Computed example of a mutant assay.
Amino acid sequence: MSVLQNNVALTERLKNIRLLVLDVDGVMTDGGLTIGDDGQEYKTFHAHDGLGMKLLKATGVNLAIITGRTSEVVKKRAESTGVAHFYQGAEDKLAALQDLMKLSGLEATQCAFMGDDVVDLPPMLKCGLAIAVPDSPDLLLKHAHYVTKKQGGRGAVREVCELIMQAQGTFDGQMARFLTQASISN
């Protein structure tokens, strides 16, 4: 039985989502910070997450990033995955979220925030859907509406994108083009 069949309240929250807001380190990445001798910061992103973000965006759900760190590589990742709103160096993530909601005209119930640490708790608690990755601190897990099965940087974002599409009835439509391509090539 799927997560959505088991949890009617979660499904209702997912149906309302018009904006998925993501933290970066620990959500879009595995949380490791690799810094070279030259001071250059390196991050590893999962390809499945990127495609999931593009597919979700194609259904009309917008994407945003709110991160406390500043990184050129994150800016490039945001651009390549169709992220509409990008806040980096955000010491107050709740203030950034409130600015984003005002800018987009969305209500809190239409927003989901996905985080991995206690600095993400204020915006998570403000949103209609609070999502955490499984290795988050207990306090975050306690307040999350949904905890992903996959780890941050290992497909957790894709998992959430697919859940939103399934709840909103857009998943099959997004997958149809891949199935059609496969049947043509056989």
Rank of each mutant, 00 (worst) to 15 (best):
Y146W: 15
N186I: 01
Q98M: 06
V27H: 10
L19H: 01
L20G: 04
D120E: 13
E162M: 11
M165S: 03
V147I: 15
D116C: 06
L51P: 02
V27D: 01
G128V: 02
D92I: 07
V83W: 03
A47S: 10
L140E: 13
V83F: 04
I65M: 07
M165D: 05
L139P: 02
L94W: 13
V160S: 03
C127I: 11
G169L: 14
L55V: 07
Y42H: 07
Q166L: 05
D172Y: 07
G169A: 12
G169D: 11
R154F: 03
V83C: 07
G32M: 04
L179T: 13
V147H: 01
V160C: 04
A58G: 10
S2A: 15
R177Y: 03
V3F: 11
S183K: 15
V24I: 06
T81H: 09
G155M: 12
E159D: 13
L179I: 13
L106P: 01
E162N: 08
F86H: 03
I65Q: 03
Q168H: 07
F113T: 03
S183R: 15
T11C: 08
K150G: 01
V21Y: 06
H85I: 08
L103A: 14
D138F: 03
L14M: 07
T170D: 02
T148S: 03
